[in-house]
Nucleic acid binder design. Sequence first.
DNA 1: CTGAAAGCGCTAACAC
DNA 2: GTGTTAGCGCTTTCAG
Lengths: 339, 339
Amino acid sequence: MAGIEEVAKLAGVSTATVSRALSGRGHVSPASKAKVEEAAALLGYVVSSNASSLASGRTRNVGVVIPFLNRWFFSSVLEGAQQALLRRGYDLTLYNLSGDGRERASVFEHFLLRQRVDAVIAVSLELTEHEVRRLHDLGKPLVGVGGPIPGVRTLTIDDVAVARLATEHLLGLGHRRIAHIGGDLEFDLDFHLPTNRRLGYEAAMREAGVEVEPRFFASADFTIRGGYHAAKQLLGVPHARPTAIFAASDEMAIGTILAVRDLGLSVPRDVSVVGIDDHDLADFFGLTTVAQFPRVQGEQAVEVLMDELEPGLRPPEPEATPLPYELRVRSSTATPPSE
Amino acid sequence: MAGIEEVAKLAGVSTATVSRALSGRGHVSPASKAKVEEAAALLGYVVSSNASSLASGRTRNVGVVIPFLNRWFFSSVLEGAQQALLRRGYDLTLYNLSGDGRERASVFEHFLLRQRVDAVIAVSLELTEHEVRRLHDLGKPLVGVGGPIPGVRTLTIDDVAVARLATEHLLGLGHRRIAHIGGDLEFDLDFHLPTNRRLGYEAAMREAGVEVEPRFFASADFTIRGGYHAAKQLLGVPHARPTAIFAASDEMAIGTILAVRDLGLSVPRDVSVVGIDDHDLADFFGLTTVAQFPRVQGEQAVEVLMDELEPGLRPPEPEATPLPYELRVRSSTATPPSE
DNA sequence: CTGAAAGCGCTAACAC
DNA sequence: GTGTTAGCGCTTTCAG
């Protein structure tokens, strides 16, 4: 393993110049820079990140803490973050907090304390005040994605507004008996998305002067299967069944579509269905949905961190940046049946 | 940030003893050990991984290189690896090679060369001989999951045998017109799974004395949508349409089920469908499939690495360890229609 | 079983 | 613009 000294010798300069030339910090004459780069390439030299980190205090590594890997939203955020980091020469250390809660403490032991990372991205995870403070004391920037963390810069869509938009779309089509499939309460612990989406739904209903009926609400676990069963429940009533269902996620909406079919009904003739996400499968199922852009959220989280890590000129943005979303009308929604 | 020195002072021992007590390397009297641990806890001390790595040459970090994050197989492997590593106090640095191939070179620059990791897990990625050698020269253990890498310990199911099993299941039910949805050729570049599964299918057919008809083959991209379109193609012929379809993945099999329904046919009455994976959704769709266990594959990959990283007593296993798989019969397969 | 001390390979003042 | 040099915080011989 060639070291910096050998490169310096070969290039005919000092190790300090090599370091400067290769890291871009401080000024180096173009001539020296060229020599250094040539020498480094020749020897296949690359800095030892450990030595560099130890000496500089920077690791060029950010930690991503995330509760699921196998769900569309989460893997998309992760993908976006990974790519943005890679582009900037940063590594991504992954902490998947699925499984028991014991892991969580362990993770904080691990990497907060081992100083492996320069910054942390917390996805849909509500950190305790203690955890936040601990990071803060260490001077590690922290940014949240998808779940508001008190006192922390967070990227998240406005769940209330998104749900309202979806509901208003159905109301606009003339629907009045609109049911909602929300998230199980357990999903509300760490990120209040289920509650917020339900609030948006109820607000839109009330504003339109439509009563919110408890029998038009069901909860599920954000999966296709969960949505399927919830929808069957909602549609099972013989009379005055809902003419539309707004599901809090596309996967549940897809489950709903499958349930409608299995009930011998047709989407959108008998029942309109709308979701949230614009999941990979939404287009395939012709699902009308409110799109959000998790990849972009991951990328943007990285950008925010970079502003703090490598201070540029951009003005710091407000604490909770609202993210874009967009209604995508496909073939799962239509005017209600005329009865 | 408390350092090792402060801990040593508080515990009344030398830094060397603190190091030994906390790392478990070398012998320390129980008494000292207790004192050190108490002092460390009191000060909230945790070793700096950089300093430790620099001095010891070990990073307690492994790199995982993986082409997709948003596919069931891959996120499951990742999850398994992550958990197994966490348990052992290792970090996982993620390198997602989706996107352009440029990234790939960059990744090798990054972490091979920055010596960030002690070992590498390559998931469904065929490394070049050069890449393998480079890692080897650096003394970094490398283990593959899901795609055979020449000269490298690899965990993978026997794709030929798995496909044969799925096909034999259909043959055993009396099917003769069995179509196969395989992977696009582009997927074959990095891991030969599509080809191998097709070979297994053909072998089973021939052994049963059934001719393999080209019109009974279609390829897709391993997605539900891809499977759907491929299945429509296969089932579109007016006469002598296949009575069974074996898809090379569950997602394609699910697409097939949806296509069958849309064609006004019924699974399994008109068409039997079998897949490979035992995807989360397989049970929901009543899909008969050959289950594989990607989480376990991820965990096992870690185990293999640990044997090399922290040599224990276990005998090294053969280069290509066959992994378990298992036919799970559900409601998507039945005897063929009697015509 | 424990301590002293020499680095691990780089970066960042500081001088020039 | 470039060289000199003192660490970064730990691990690990080597003595004892």
